[in-house]
């Protein structure tokens, strides 16, 4: 959904998991995941204001979870020799987010997008790094499922979370 909108609008600010270079190394894929986490944190700031009650609480928890992943990545990447990507001041939204329905739709898409970046890290990591990537992918997929349920989207699951459509 969002990807179609994104393409039609020629956006390029939100990191797109399909734009990953063909043979990235572990540092590059983790830097991509970091960029996705930045965008997710920013998006939840927009999402949260259009939600109330339990959904707003869930948005806060989701944002905190993405901050936690971001911080872990910052620490890890700072130890390496590679460049650590910086956050941006803001991100272009794929469509106007002015009500609850659009906020929930964006929440699902943000989680699937971030799941895609973590999924892309799996082939380029081993051991603890791969386990971290899988845990992050799984967490994103779970949140996407919960947001679909909140939004009344059926089915609430997808066969291959994080896989490019």
């Amino acid at each position: 959904m969002s990807e179609r909108t994104e393409r039609s609008e020629g956006r390029e600010h939100m990191p797109d998991r399909r734009s990953v270079s063909p043979a990235p190394g572990p540092t590059q894929v983790l830097a991509d995941a970091l960029a996705a986490e930045y965008a997710a944190i920013w998006a939840y700031g927009v999402i949260g204001v259009h939600l109330a009650d339990a959904a707003r609480t869930a948005a806060r928890a989701a944002e905190a979870a993405h901050r936690s992943r971001r911080d872990a990545l910052l620490l890890q990447l700072a130890e390496g020799a590679g460049q650590v990507p910086a956050d941006r001041a803001g991100y272009a939204l794929p469509y106007p987010v002015t009500d609850r329905a659009a906020a929930l739709r964006l929440a699902v898409e943000i989680e699937e997008r971030t799941a895609g970046h973590w999924r892309a890290a799996l082939p380029h990591t081993t051991g603890a790094d791969r386990n971290t990537a899988l845990a992050a992918l799984t967490d994103c997929a779970l949140r996407a499922t919960r947001w679909r349920r909140t939004a009344g989207v059926n089915p609430v699951t997808v066969p291959f979370p994080g896989r490019p459509a």
Binding site: R119, L122, P123, L134, T138, A141, T157, G162
Partner: peptide, 14 residues
């Protein structure tokens, strides 16, 4: 790895 990661995540969402 990516395919198996998606399958593990899918089962979690189930």
């Amino acid at each position: 790895a990516a395919m198996l990661g998606s399958i593990a995540a899918a089962r979690a969402t189930h």
